[in-house]
Amino acid sequence: MTATQPTRGTLPQVIRRDQATLLVSGADRQGLVTEVSSVLADFDANIISLDQHSDDPFGGNFFQRTVFTVTDFEAKQSALEAALEDNITEELGLTWQLIPGSKIKRVAILASKADHCLLDLLWRQRRGDIPMSVAMVISNHVDVAADVRQFNVPFFHVPSAAGSDKSAAEAEIVKLLEGNVDLVVLARYMQILSPEFLDQVGVPIINIHHSFLPAFIGAAPYRKAKERGVKLIGATAHYVTADLDEGPIIDQDVVRVTHADTAADLQRRGADVERQVLARAVTWHCEDRVMLNGHETVVFSN
């Protein structure tokens, strides 16, 4: 393993120390929005955004995302968490997560030779378009090292051994990630991750697949799409699970193509879709807009 660790660039984000996001989920029933809001009202919270969803109004699952401000939030956070535990967990039987507005997610990006998704994420982070701090870039090739250095982000080269045994490389990556990141993004990282690796990492992993899943799962989807004569190609951002390319989908998009487009044309045009879809998915995750509902996702727009 080789590494270069330049000084980090400053993160152009507005840190909102009096703002927080509350995520609530559980069995739906009448009055939940009022009861959750009343807990926040007891702390003089000002709700600035609220969105909720029920997958079935009669006995379904309830999901709510609330963004609010509280004066001196950091001083009141422990008391608010205790009130949420008493009222939301004990009385209503719901689960909840309270995320301070000052907490910017630390992200590791894994990439291979293709650089379009990687550089797009680094550029958006530098502009402050995505509320994240890129803690490191890890690649099994050195092709992107020079470009990553321009963003003042640590770059680590962890080669993948030939053959099916990737355990040594995965163990090295786990050491780099452990305790340092809140999210891992696979920006066209062309390696299949083992179930053991997924368990050890212990944080969500987002992948961009260059296909409109569930079509053309696995390798070479643009070639498969050309052979099938499709008129639409797309990209899918999803959470990674032990089942290859079958994790909960966060975002998808498509672009129209014709019979005259070659497989190379499809790949070139698809790269634009991949960038946009992955950027949206990472942004929504970092803004705490995505909640899991079994194998599906609830993605809040407000």
Rank of each mutant, 00 (worst) to 15 (best):
T2A: 00
T2Y: 12
Q19S: 13
L22F: 01
L32V: 08
V33H: 09
E35P: 03
V36F: 06
S38T: 14
S38K: 15
F43W: 08
N46S: 13
I48Q: 14
I48D: 12
G60P: 09
F63V: 00
R65W: 07
F68Y: 03
A75P: 00
K76F: 00
A82K: 13
E85N: 13
E91I: 12
K103C: 08
K103Q: 14
D115H: 13
Q125C: 12
G128H: 07
V134W: 02
A135G: 08
S139L: 07
V142K: 14
Q150T: 14
F155A: 03
H157L: 09
H157M: 02
G163Q: 10
S167H: 12
A169D: 01
L177H: 02
G179T: 04
L186N: 07
Y189L: 04
P195N: 05
Q200G: 00
V201H: 06
V201F: 03
P204K: 05
I205V: 12
I205E: 00
F212Q: 05
L213Y: 09
P214I: 01
G218D: 04
G218P: 02
A219L: 13
P221L: 09
K231C: 01
G234F: 01
T236W: 03
T236D: 00
T236I: 02
A237P: 02
A237F: 02
T241I: 08
A242T: 14
A242R: 11
I249F: 06
D251A: 13
D253R: 08
V255N: 05
R256C: 00
R256W: 06
T258P: 07
D261N: 06
G270P: 01
A271H: 06
A271V: 08
L278G: 00
R280D: 08
V290N: 05
E296I: 12
E296Y: 15
V299Y: 05
S301N: 15
